[in-house]
């Protein structure tokens, strides 16, 4: 696969095995700044593993991942954690909000991890919550809000550090169509206006339709559909 110039993140020939199963078997990926790329494929195809590798959550067995010129695959855990804290944002399907913290505290958490003062962090967090239309939930705990609202809080959290790259793993997986669409609309809009790129793992075509481009993962191998069309 050609690595287009000016890519934010380029991965080549990724291999990753969990025990005897090859989760990734030569997958490739690239994304430009500000681009929304959907990663599709049947369940068990390795799309979540691809996302975990790209985000530096797990290291691939072989292959290279370059983010902004830095090689992720050989980076130590502390550096990767730092990168995740400062450059990346994350949205997962569910179970990602700390149940004990209020929503605004949850959104402020990544900033706090970077050492921002509590006041400052919560002010910024509230700003993002407003953009995602959940600012009225600031003082509530995750257990007291609906699934769609919780997901929007999670999106606000993924954006709060102004990351250049957001990883979203089935962000609408637990939501109905209406709520899912709303979350996708808000996520892509907010990401576009902040010029953040989004890696969107999903198996739903209507969610993938919010992307600029998609790649399909099948049996640990990726296909870039841009090239095919």
């Amino acid at each position: 696969m050609n690595a287009p110039g000016g890519s934010l993140l380029v991965a080549e020939d990724l291999k990753k095995a969990y025990g005897p199963t090859m989760a990734l078997d030569g997958a490739a990926f690239s994304i430009h700044p500000g681009e929304v790329v959907a990663v599709m494929g049947p369940s068990g195809s390795g799309k979540s593993t691809l996302l975990h590798c790209l985000a530096g959550i797990v290291t691939p067995d072989s292959g290279s991942i370059r983010y902004d010129g830095q090689e992720l695959a050989t980076m130590n855990d502390a550096r990767r954690s730092l990168l995740r804290r400062t450059e990346f944002g994350f949205v997962f399907q569910f179970g990602q909000l700390v149940p004990e913290l209020t929503c605004v505290e949850n959104v402020a958490l990544p900033l706090r991890l970077n050492g921002t003062s509590r006041k400052q962090a919560e002010r910024t967090a509230l700003g993002w919550m407003e953009r995602l239309e959940v600012d009225d939930l600031a003082k509530k705990r995750p257990g007291e809000v609906s699934g769609g609202q919780g997901q929007r809080v999670a999106v606000a959290r993924s954006l709060v550090t102004s990351p250049r790259l957001i990883f979203a793993d089935e962000p609408t997986g637990a939501l109905d169509s209406l709520n899912g669409e709303r979350v996708m609309e808000l996520l892509t809009e907010a990401a576009r206006s902040a010029n953040a790129a989004v890696v969107l793992v999903t198996h739903e075509a209507r969610v993938a339709a919010y992307s600029d481009r998609e790649i399909v993962v099948r049996d640990g191998k990726s296909r870039d559909m841009e090239r095919v069309v």
């Binding site: 959550i57 954690s81 995740r84 804290r85 990602q96 909000l97 991890l113």
Partner: peptide
């Protein structure tokens, strides 16, 4: 478990 993993994902030490 899930919560812990997602906290680690977004860079919690």
């Amino acid at each position: 478990r899930k919560l812990l993993s997602s906290l680690v994902a977004f860079g919690t030490r």
